[in-house]
Amino acid sequence: MINTTTKKHLISKTLDEFFLSVNNAFRFVIQYFKQVLIPPFHFSEIINQCFEIGLRALPLITLTGFIVGVVFTKQSRPPLEDFGATSWLPSLIGIAVVKAMGPLVTALICAGKVGSGIGAELGSMKVTEQIDAMEVSAINPFKYLVVTRVTAAIITIPILSFYCIVVGLIGSFINIHAEEATSFIAFYKNAFSTLNFLDLFTSVIKSVVFGFTIGIVGTYKGFNASQGTRGVGKAANEAVVMAMFLIFMEEMLIVQVSNWMRSM
C-alpha cells in the first residue's frame, strides 16, 4: 500500500504549527467577545471569580505595593536633595506609582498568581475530561469557564491596581512623613499636582488591558492543555511567561500612544 498519510506542510512543520496556534489564539479572543454579549451571563460565577482572583493576589500586592512605595521614595531622595528639590518628592512618587508602577506591578503579580492558577485549573479540568463533561450536559464550557474568568480579571485587576497605588502611596507617605514631616494633605496635593486626567485614564485602560491579557492567556493555555498531568504544569507555566511578555509589550505600546495623544 502506498503511504498517503504523510502530511505535506505549507512551509515547515514548526512554522505551520506556529501560524496555526496564532490563528487559534485569535479565534479564541474573537469567541470571547462574541459570547460575552450573549446570555446567559453567569453573574454569580463572575462574582465568585472576582473574589477568587482578588483574594489570591491581595496579600502579595499589599506587600509589594508597600515596599515599592517605601523603597522608591528612599532611593529618589538623595538625587533630589542634590538639587534642593525634596519638596518635589511626592509628585515624583505620584507620577511613578500612578502611571507606571501600580498597574505594572499588579499585572505582573497577577500574571504569576492568577494567570498560572487559571491555567492550571482549566488545564486539569481539560485533561480529566471535566470540560467534556460540561459539554455533554449541554453547558457551554467556554461561557461558564472562560468568559466568567476573563470578565472577572477585567473587573478585578483595575481594582487591584488602584489598591496597589493606594498602598504604594501610603508607604511613600510614611517614609516622607518620617523624614520631612510633611502632612498628609500636603503630600496628597503634591503627589497629584502633576497628574492629569489623561494620566489616570491611561492607567485605568492599561489595567483593563492587562486584566484581559491575564485572563485570556490563562484560559487559552488551560483550555488547550494536551493530555496528561504534564500538560497541566505546562499550561500554568506557559500562561505566566506568555502573559508577562504580552504585558510588557502592551505597556510599551500604551505609553507610546498616550504620549502621542498628549502631544496632539
Partner: peptide, 11 residues
C-alpha cells in the same frame, strides 16, 4: 454520558 474517568467537577 458516563465517563470512563468519572469526570466529576473537583471544585
Amino acid at each position: 454520558f458516563s465517563f470512563q474517568s468519572s469526570a466529576l467537577y473537583d471544585s
